[in-house]
């Protein structure tokens, strides 16, 4: 789990939670923009990707584990996000 045992004033489990909530509110806010444009889609997927990285690294505690586990988890996240972007771009 969270491996940031050292006290970090700006990046700790509490600020991480706040960032995740803030990014969720940004996603929600963007849903009101009546634009099915590529830019909005890209921002939404990038935000989801960033949230995924935070969960994998800091909530699941994969920071510092062997490369294999990281490749599987970040690989899954990257492939899924990339496939969604490509599918939306060609639609």
């Amino acid at each position: 789990m969270w491996s940031g045992d050292k006290v970090n004033r700006f990046y700790n489990i509490h600020t991480l939670w706040m960032m995740l909530v803030l990014l969720t509110l940004i996603t929600y806010g963007l849903s009101f923009i009546d634009a099915n444009g590529t830019a909005i889609m890209l921002v939404l997927i990038i935000v989801a990707f960033a949230k995924g990285v935070m969960i994998i690294r800091d909530y699941m505690g994969l920071k510092g584990v062997s490369l294999l586990w990281k490749v599987i988890m970040y690989g899954w996240l990257s492939v899924v996000c990339l496939a969604i972007v490509v599918a939306y771009l060609v639609s």
Partner: peptide
Amino acid sequence: IMFPLIYVV
């Protein structure tokens, strides 16, 4: 991933 995909994008 599901929230933006199904609800927003």
